[in-house]
């Protein structure tokens, strides 16, 4: 057999092996209960609980932002992000946070917001109505 073919087969084999490991880096969106049970880093997709308070008080700590989200099971928990409050946070609906549970709170290190697109198809601005 040609050497190149051998190398190619090796690469493909290695590739298939690595592709299977993608599965280990991937998981489904978790709930707060899953996060509590597993104790691992997870991704939670939830709705921002707009009626609950959002705390960002830079005078006290510019790297502390807390808010509440409701996960897919309907459970509401406080999420703490060690960063400044992201721009347009109030507008977001769906929020994806990555992190882990510590006690009763979820400590997020990463946050992705899905905002209803602000600049598109929202409303027709009427002149002189500012």
């Amino acid at each position: 057999m040609k050497k190149i073919v051998i190398v190619a087969i090796m690469l493909i084999a290695g590739g298939i092996f690595l592709l299977t490991t993608i599965a280990s880096d991937a998981s489904t969106y978790a709930t707060f209960q899953d996060a509590k049970d597993s104790g691992k880093r997870v991704k939670i997709a939830g709705q921002l609980a707009k009626d609950k308070e959002m705390v960002y008080n830079p005078e006290k700590d510019p790297n502390y932002f807390s808010f509440f989200i409701k996960d897919t099971d309907g459970e509401e928990k406080k999420v703490i992000l060690a960063a400044a409050k992201p721009q347009d946070f109030e507008l977001s609906e769906q929020i994806v946070v990555t992190g882990e549970m510590q006690g009763e709170d979820f400590y997020a290190t990463d946050l992705l917001m899905k905002c209803p697109s602000k600049y598109k198809d929202e409303e027709i601005y009427i002149k002189g109505e500012q």
Partner: peptide, 15 residues
Amino acid sequence: LIQSTGDESLRNNVM
């Protein structure tokens, strides 16, 4: 002097 929350490396803001 103030209590830390979460990952230190993330805390990159000051007032």
